[in-house]
Structure formats: structure tokens, C-alpha cells
Design a protein around this nucleic acid. Sequence first.
DNA 1: TAGATTGTTAATCGATTAACAATC
DNA 2: TAGATTGTTAATCGATTAACAATC
Lengths: 215, 215
Amino acid sequence: MKGQPARAISERTIERLSLYRRLLAKLARQQSPHVYSHTLASLAHGTPAQVRRDLMLIGFSGSPARGYNIQDLIDRIDLILDSPDGQRIALVGVGNLGRALLAYIAGQRSKLAIVAAFDRDPAKTGRLINGIPCHSILDMPDFIRSRKITLAVLAVPQDAAQSVVDTLVASGIRAILNFVPVPIRVPRHVHVDDLDMMMSLEKLAYFARQAGNGD
Amino acid sequence: MKGQPARAISERTIERLSLYRRLLAKLARQQSPHVYSHTLASLAHGTPAQVRRDLMLIGFSGSPARGYNIQDLIDRIDLILDSPDGQRIALVGVGNLGRALLAYIAGQRSKLAIVAAFDRDPAKTGRLINGIPCHSILDMPDFIRSRKITLAVLAVPQDAAQSVVDTLVASGIRAILNFVPVPIRVPRHVHVDDLDMMMSLEKLAYFARQAGNGD
DNA sequence: TAGATTGTTAATCGATTAACAATC
DNA sequence: TAGATTGTTAATCGATTAACAATC
């Protein structure tokens, strides 16, 4: 069964759809039930042409007179981005950053939910952290398999990263949000998104300097 | 005075230079003092052609016989990415995420250092958090100006984001690492990098699903 | 020397933007 | 109707990759 047109939507477009949905949710609480491409574009810091093209790619139509129906568009994006029965996330590495991510992600209401955390340190396992059960990393493979967890957030020490990733992949994980500043190797069917804060800071530092050493 | 060739290096290339430097630092502790483009490429998950092109752009040369000298290359990248007298960072928003970022960034040794944190909540100000002084957000403009802080990390609640950004910009901030999931408006000379975790998770969830709903 | 690698230009690829007929 | 907006194709732009002469 092929629910959607199944034609590949690019990574960039998926990112923007996620952003559009968030902006539309705010718009929905306001005046008009419709929005023009130029309005949404300006909220998203994009161009009207890009908004129209993105919506074309997901087969969503508007009207030249009124623009796009906000609620219908939200529903359409939900259909694409959300899995009907939600998707479960495992957090691996319950250090400072891991705990903050736990609180942060739990705070957003979404079809995505962290259902378990794992750590090597026995002092951290066997109890709830931010309402999420924290288990020994030894129990991770069974847990991921039995609970059909497909996503992982990686926040372990650098040295442990690759071996934890290998375990995650062997357990059936399909995508990893990686906070560890080291390139991790995965098979082609597994997706990785690297959020490398030091790299971002170094990049910003460079461009801040370029911006004008004037005064 | 024009220290570097000053020809614009692209954002992507700067990101890779930051990554190369990190990988080279590890290589430097090992066997050979030289590295080939294909070796560095494979560590960085890139292509040899891209590595050579990046190094060409910064005017760094190797030898067909031995490849690139590791220490010389590190020194060259330092010259481009680092400011001789370091660059100071302000953290705004000392919630769960802010405190974790404080610990994380302090942990990396770098020419970049968080020198102050700011929060609206009086319960959090007037004391050290992770060794960093935390001040009232009212003192922020003076502090940023007098200490010549050019970078900011933004981790405040959504509602406060834009007004805090306006204050930062007015105080002379040149670049912002933004963890708040809302598009912020800045003048053209200010650089923003958005690290939007929920967007990344939603993107990964989509591609994890595409990857094969097979079994 | 023969063989591998560098430095650099040209070709390719993908994504964004412009343009404009069709529509309300 | 006149005027603005949509839907979509074509043009543009930027970044990556391929190719290969020069070099060690």
C-alpha cells in the first residue's frame, strides 16, 4: 500500500514543512482561515515562490482569490510528517545534555515521544528521570526491539559513540539525532542528523569577525 | 590591514574546516606527520576532491608524494577560524537547556568561551552557575558592550526570543546561535544559526519511515 | 622511472528563484 | 472587469564531483 504519492520529497522541503506547520498553528488561532504564500513566506524567512513550490510538491492547492486554507494545510502536513501511531524515541547518554534534552523534548507536544533513556552508569539507571525510565545500556537492544523504537538521540561521550551507534543499528534503529562531535558510521538505510554546537559556534565566530572589524 | 586573502569562504567550507581541524588534532597524535586527501576525506565522510578544493580555497598546499603536513594545516586553519585574542560568548536564558549548554561549551577547550549568562529570573542571577557569573538581563546591554562580546547563545522561552534578540543586536552582538524554535529577525550584518531539535527530529522521523516500512 | 597524489578547471547536480499563463 | 495570486515550467545560482595535466 502506498499511502502518499511516495515521490521523494527533499530534506530541505521536509524541514520547511515542519516549520510551516508550526507557523500555521499560530496563524490558525488568529483572524482569517486562509493565508497567502507571501504571508507564510515572510513568517518563514523564505520566498513566496518557494512556499508555493513546496506545497505543490505535497499536492496541496490553494485559490488565487483566498490563498491556502490554514487548517486543511496543517492536516495535509500532519499526514506527511506524522506516523498515525506515533514514533518512539530512545535517548542514549543521560549526562547534563541528555537530561536537558529529555526535559526539552518532553515539553513539546508532538507525535514524537522519548519513551526510554539509557546510560552505562548504574547510578543513573533503574529510576525515573524527568518522568522517563532510565535503563542500563545492556538492556537497550531488547528494549528497542520489543518497543519498536525507530529513533535515537545520541548524547554519550565521544569514545563511546561509535560502539553505541553499532548497537543501535543492530537493534533496528532507523535514524539518529547525533549530538556527539564526531562523525559516526552507519549503513545507508540509517539516517543521521548531526547537531554540532562547537562547529556552529566556530562558524558563527568566523562570520561575526568578517561582518566588519570596523569599530 | 588584510590578514587573510579575504576572499569569501563559503559557509559549508568553514564548517568542514572546523571538522578537519578536529580530526587532524587526533591524527597529529599518531604515526605520520602527513595525511592524504583521501584519508582525511574518509574520516570526514567526504570526498578527496572536496578536501583538496577546500584546502585550495584557503591557499594550503601539499605534496604529491606525502600529502599534507598535519601540523601546518592545523596552524593554517587556526589562523582562519580563531581570533588571536579569542572571542567571548554570552548565554541568554539559564533554563535546563541553558545550563546544559554552559557545561557543554565550557568542557570543550577552544578560543571561544562563555563569559557570562543572563536570565530574567532573579532566583538565577547574582551567583555562579557552572563557574560562570549569571546576571540580570537588565545588565546585559552594558555588559556586552563593555566586555566586547560578539557572540550570543539564545536559549530563552519562545515569547521572549525576538525582544531579547533586538536587545542583543542593539548591544553590538554579531552572531547568534539560536536554540529557540521560532524564526528570529535580525539585520543583515548579524548572522544566525538555528539549531532546531524538534525540526530535526521530525525530519528524521519522516526519513526513518520512508527507509522501509518493510518488516 | 612508474605510480600515486596534488591543484585546478570544467562538467554535473540539486536546489532556489524568476517568469508567466491560468484562475478566482 | 481589473488586479492579485496560484501552479508550474524554465532559468539561474551555488556547491559538489569528475577529470586530468603537473608534480613528486
